[in-house]
């Protein structure tokens, strides 16, 4: 059993992403969407935490949300993968359930 977690809030504004990561199981995936995509940014105070969790969970960002915010994919933390809407659907299909962190 594995879970796809979605986070749609900026990690600099709420604890949603950190709380999500603290609850995710090895083998789960975390997809950052909307303002959640800021969590994928490298060179921030959160990068170290993200690197650590990235060893056990797969990290994704929704590319259209990243582009809307003017963030080049090159700025993403190594290991964070961009997906489009079809990729979002694939992730939902691949995991047993989806949990939203609002």
């Amino acid at each position: 059993m594995s879970t796809l977690h979605t986070v749609n809030k900026s990690p600099f504004a709420t604890q949603a992403l950190v709380s999500c990561l603290n609850h995710a199981k090895a083998g789960d995936a975390v997809l950052m969407i909307e303002d959640g995509v800021y969590g994928g940014l490298g060179g921030t105070g959160l990068t170290e935490i993200m690197d650590e969790f990235g060893k056990n969970v797969s990290l994704y960002v929704l590319s259209p949300d990243l582009a809307a915010r003017g963030l080049d994919p090159k700025r993403l933390i190594a290991g964070v993968e961009g997906v489009d809407y079809a990729g979002f659907v694939d992730l939902v299909a691949k995991h047993d359930r989806t949990q939203s962190w609002l």
Partner: peptide
């Protein structure tokens, strides 16, 4: 500060 980033492209959303 994110409001002022360069290169915003909202076509996809």
């Amino acid at each position: 500060v994110f409001q002022l980033t360069k290169g915003q492209n909202t076509d996809g959303i």
